[in-house]
């Protein structure tokens, strides 16, 4: 029942580095454009510029967790460790992106509403996601047996992901109950280019990071799974 942990694609590191590098470049271009060159927004001022980074980060964070969800299902159905390493990687990257998202949200909220946290449903859901998936990452570090670790974290990831829409709606209702202000969603259409460049930039960066991180996980697993030496 031996399944290869690494295939030739993941063992080739040059592609992920190039992809990540391209992503980083795009991110720099898009951010500079949005943060420095794009015209000032009428009502909110310069603070609104953070949207050029915030919105792409949000898209990609959700994408990372959705990919993690897919990996979890694949890992349970197919067995082996190929999808487990990708699950580990995408969960970590997702947590990092979501944490950045929360920080960005706080940076936006303070000058705008005067408080660090405005209980925006999407942001609050993101905070819950950070905690949920951090917990799953912690679970992984407590389980020594790799087979069990793979199955359990896949189960936990599925359970956590299914919760996302439920958390979102519950926070949304809870907010409207207490009549909290809502975060404006629109970014003026005329300035969509830096947004898209950043989105693709972060996407590529994320892709490269997930691939590299999955490779590290695969290497660690291969070392752990060495079959016992042949009896004399």
């Amino acid at each position: 029942m031996a399944t290869a942990v690494m295939d030739t694609k993941t063992s080739d590191t040059s592609t992920p580095y190039m992809v990540a590098g391209a992503g980083l470049l795009l991110l720099v271009v898009g951010s500079y454009w949005g943060l420095a060159y794009a015209p000032r927004e009428t009502y909110m001022g310069d603070v609104q510029r953070i949207m050029y980074v915030h919105v792409p980060t949000a898209w990609n964070a959700m994408l990372a967790f959705t990919f993690a969800f897919g990996c979890a299902i694949a890992s349970l159905i197919r067995g082996g460790y190929r999808w487990d390493t990708r699950l580990e990687a995408s969960m970590e990257v997702g947590v990092v992106l979501s944490t950045l998202l929360c920080i960005q949200g706080a940076i936006w909220a303070k000058p705008t509403w005067g408080v660090w946290w405005d209980w925006d449903p999407r942001l609050t859901t993101t905070a819950v996601l950070v905690l949920a998936f951090s917990g799953i990452i912690a679970l992984r570090s407590f389980v020594d047996d790799p087979g069990r670790r793979a199955v359990w974290s896949a189960v936990a990831a599925i359970i956590a992901y299914v919760d996302v829409p439920i958390v979102y709606f519950s926070v949304k209702w809870w907010n409207s109950l207490h009549q909290m202000q809502s975060t404006p969603e629109t970014v003026s259409k005329a300035f969509h280019w830096p947004l898209r460049i950043n989105a693709i930039g972060i996407l590529l960066l994320m892709w490269g990071l997930i691939a590299l991180r999955a490779r590290i996980a695969a290497l660690r697993l291969e070392r752990q799974l060495q079959p016992p030496p042949e009896a004399a």
Binding site: G135, I136, A160, S170, W174
Partner: peptide, 15 residues
């Protein structure tokens, strides 16, 4: 680990 995993999940229940 148990509260760490359970509590974020049951936020909707709490709310």
């Amino acid at each position: 680990l148990l509260p760490l995993l359970l509590f974020p999940l049951v936020v909707p229940v709490l709310l």
